[in-house]
Simulated scan of single mutants.
Amino acid sequence: MTNGLYLYGIFPHPGPQQLDLEGLDNQPVHTQDLDGFVFLYSEAKQKKYLSSRKNLLGHERVLEGAMEHGYRTLLPLQFGLIVDDWSSVQAQLTHPQGEALQSLFHKLEGHREVSVKLFWEQDQELELLMQQHEALRTERDRLEGKALSMDEVVKIGQAIERSLEDRKQQIIQEFRATLNPLATDVIENDSMTPAMIYNAAYLIPWNEEATFGRQVEALDAQFEGRLKIRYNNFTAPFNFARLN
């Protein structure tokens, strides 16, 4: 039983010609040419797909599989998009948003998305801060062992918090100064955990990834193990395929 069509992404015409990919629920992936846009889809076997790790990875695997076959100009669609028929896609997307879709294809052509997520150990950074910030260390040591008033507790806490924030911003600025000039566009996203201090996606020329990757490695070496860097150099361009 089918519950409609599950959509993965859109390519410019003529799109992929011979893809052998398996989508969600082990369904074969097909293409549909619609108004000059080529949709990647499979039959939906569920009315709604839960955003489980398995399903999310299955969605991304289809997109990355198409890119690995050389079809790199791709607008990924959000996870869980099911339509009843192609006429609804025309009415809601290709007819009203056709020009915007073409503009996105133009922006993405010859480019790829990479991402950098930075993590630090706050306790380790606090210890380094105290080693390097003599005035703050002296003030902390002076108060150690004393019965402190609430004002004193708040004052030293705020001073430490400001100094930690300054250290974080210095790291972020170093990454911006090094990596942003290599990118056509940059999107900074919210941090996902307290330990994550920076989360950015970069749109870079497809063949410049090796250069970008070397700069990430150089930054990693520069901070001498203070950071954990999660670098993703191959992903569908979710951050840059947004309709205004």
Results as ranks from 00 to 15, higher is better:
G23S: 01
G23E: 00
L24D: 02
L24H: 02
L24A: 06
D25A: 10
D25P: 05
N26Q: 12
Q27E: 12
P28Q: 11
V29E: 00
V29L: 13
H30V: 08
T31K: 03
T31A: 06
Q32W: 10
Q32R: 15
D33I: 00
D35I: 02
G36K: 15
F37Y: 13
F37W: 11
V38H: 07
V38S: 02
V38E: 04
V38L: 13
F39T: 06
F39Y: 14
L40W: 03
L40M: 01
Y41H: 14
S42C: 07
S42W: 07
S42L: 03
E43N: 14
E43I: 03
A44R: 06
A44P: 01
K45P: 01
K47V: 04
K48P: 09
K48Y: 11
Y49T: 03
Y49C: 04
S51E: 14
S52R: 11
R53I: 15
R53Y: 14
K54N: 09
N55R: 09
L56A: 09
L56R: 11
L56C: 02
L57E: 13
G58E: 11
G58P: 01
H59M: 05
H59I: 00
V62Y: 01
V62E: 02
E64G: 01
A66M: 00
A66H: 07
A66P: 02
A66Y: 00
E68Q: 12
H69K: 15
H69W: 10
T73M: 01
T73I: 04
L74Q: 13
L74D: 09
P76Q: 13
P76M: 14
P76H: 14
Q78I: 09
Q78S: 12
Q78G: 11
Q78L: 14
Q78F: 14
F79L: 03
